[in-house]
Simulated assay, not measured.
Amino acid sequence: MKTQLVGMIWAEAAEGVIGHEGGMPWHLPEDLAYFKKMTADCPVIMGRKTWESLPEQFRPLPKRTNVVISSDAGRAASLRSEGALTASSLKEAVDLAGQKAPKAHMTWIMGGGRIYAEAMEKDLADLASITRIDLQTAGDTYAPQLGEGWAGVVKVPEQGWKTAENGTRYRFETYRREGRP
């Protein structure tokens, strides 16, 4: 039973690109700082490939309950030995996150593409926090389309773009599923 809000959080470049060949095709420290701030003290849910894409020194992500989805029982044991909780489905991961961190105000889904798509398909997410990056790049993993039923809570107008230290333009946008708290 879901007891806290569930959000999805990602950064995306032009055309919805969120990943390429197992990683992010950009380096944007401002987005990493935003992610850290938003997810601190909250459970994070990710697929096994997303877990493996994290540098080893950051696994598990500190100050967060890390839940990794894996249907491979042998791999799940290895993930647990690395400090992650494991679940065999997204629904199980959401329930587990709520049980292990009941005082957290939010559970965050942090990827990858198939996990976001499933969250949308099964109507599991209440909120989407998106970093839009003004960048054309190759990609093989894409963000879900929010579509009908999502309303911008904080949608920065065009003049709201910020410029990162490396010169890349970006902005943060937040959307809430209509009818949700």
Score class of each variant (00 low, 15 high):
Met1Ala: 14
Lys2Phe: 13
Gln4Ser: 12
Gln4His: 09
Leu5Trp: 10
Leu5Thr: 14
Met8Pro: 04
Ile9Gln: 00
Ala13Trp: 03
Ala14Cys: 14
Gly16Ser: 01
Val17His: 00
Ile18Asp: 08
Gly19His: 08
Gly19Ile: 06
His20Asp: 07
Gly22Thr: 09
Gly23Met: 12
Gly23Pro: 13
Trp26Ser: 02
Leu28Asp: 02
Leu28Arg: 02
Asp31Phe: 03
Met38Ile: 12
Thr39Met: 02
Asp41Thr: 02
Val44Gly: 01
Met46Gly: 02
Met46Pro: 03
Gly47Tyr: 04
Arg48Asn: 03
Arg48Asp: 02
Glu52Lys: 07
Leu54Asn: 01
Leu54Cys: 05
Gln57Met: 09
Phe58Pro: 07
Pro60Ile: 05
Pro60Ala: 09
Lys63Pro: 04
Arg64Gly: 01
Thr65Lys: 06
Val68Tyr: 06
Val68Leu: 03
Ser71Val: 11
Ala76His: 09
Ser81Asp: 15
Gly83Leu: 08
Ala84Thr: 09
Ala84Val: 10
Leu85Tyr: 15
Ala87Met: 05
Ala87Val: 06
Ser88Cys: 11
Lys91Pro: 08
Val94His: 03
Val94Ser: 06
Gly98Gln: 07
Gln99Ile: 09
Gln99Met: 10
Ala101Lys: 04
Pro102Asn: 14
Pro102Gln: 11
Lys103Val: 11
Met106Phe: 10
Thr107Trp: 04
Trp108Glu: 00
Ile109Gln: 01
Ile109Val: 09
Met110Val: 15
Met110Arg: 06
Gly111Ile: 01
Gly112Ser: 10
Gly112Arg: 07
Arg114Val: 07
Tyr116Pro: 03
Ala119His: 06
Asp123Glu: 14
Asp123Leu: 10
Ala125Cys: 11
Asp126Lys: 04
Ser129Trp: 00
Ser129Phe: 02
Arg132Met: 09
Ala138Cys: 06
Ala138Gln: 11
Gly139Pro: 05
Asp140Val: 04
Leu146Asp: 09
Gly147Trp: 14
Gly147Cys: 13
Glu148Ile: 13
Glu148Gln: 14
Trp150Val: 11
Ala151Leu: 11
Val153Asp: 15
Lys155His: 14
Val156Ser: 14
Gln159Tyr: 10
Gly160Lys: 04
Thr163Asp: 02
Ala164Met: 00
Asn166Pro: 05
Asn166Gly: 01
Arg169Met: 07
Glu173Ile: 05
Thr174Ala: 07
Thr174Leu: 08
Thr174Tyr: 06
Arg176Ser: 11
Arg177Asp: 13
Arg177Gln: 13
Glu178Ser: 14
